[in-house]
Amino acid sequence: MKQKIFIISGLVLLIAVVVIMFADLFSSKQADQANPYDYKMGEIRKSDSTRSAYSEQMIISPPLAEMHALACGAGDRIFVAGKDTLLIYDQPGHSAGRFLFNGTASCMTLDKKGNIYIGMQDHVEIFDPSGKLIKKWKTFSDESLITGIAVSDSGVFLADFGKKIVYRCSPDGRLINRIGEKDPQKNIPGFIIPSPYFDLALGKKGELWVANTGRHSLEQFSNDGTLNSAWGEANMAVEGFCGCCNPSHFALLSDGSFVTSEKGIERVKIYSPRGKFECVVAPPTAFIEGTRGLDLAVDSKDRIIVLDPEKKQLRIFVKK
């Protein structure tokens, strides 16, 4: 009896093997079509809530079809611009002004006098606080696409994605010098900007920071173009920047810390003035997957304003 059980068990298993083999061979069922090399972002998009130190305080929904440019002005007024229109909001989020222009804004900043500098794709237009056009600069080049702008006493700094270069100009549009051109002798690696997100910002002392997105780093230059320092780490973990080119935008807090935003894995994070990861402001789950162009601004109270072009919102985050 025992022997029979052994034989039957053995036979059942053996027949199972044969059946599996032949069934698989002649099955018309498609083989597993899952791509083993598929770049699965699901795991990376998961965020550790303990590393989040900010909460969303307010949402403003500007009635704009397109939103591309964000800036913060005196009195913590928020300026947002898209196609043909600029809207202004006061600190509580109420509408405080509106004016029209011709063209599509790609970036924006304000000077001490409240004049508004708008990067218009291939040139710059300057408006006074009432919205009157003061100056319209000449086009830099047919290939130019101005994606980052900042102004200080040293001049107007423009990040040109088309030419992969930073221009330092006078307020009337005259080119003073170029910054960031590849120069191995001066240890300047040059900008590697694979996608049209090329941002720059000025620190508290007017020092220029530029996002070299292809190198996943932020680089600091003197006005004459000397590269002084850089930080950034290519890393799939939350501490670094990943994908082809990140961070897409950044801004500086009052203590010199950096606020960065990324595409691919949409998130906003804080780094210390020395470039050490500190915390998450908004995790990937806070954004619609595929969101790009999360422009950033910081007001005098270090509130972080995020332009969310997918949700068409201005989202304001404050420290918990």
Partner: peptide, 21 residues
């Protein structure tokens, strides 16, 4: 799993692959 089943059957039917496959 496939190999496991074959080796399990080999406990009672010695060398199942050699003899019957």
């Amino acid at each position: 799993l496939f190999t496991g089943i074959l080796l399990l059957s080999g406990i009672f039917i010695a060398r199942p692959y050699c003899r019957f496959l």
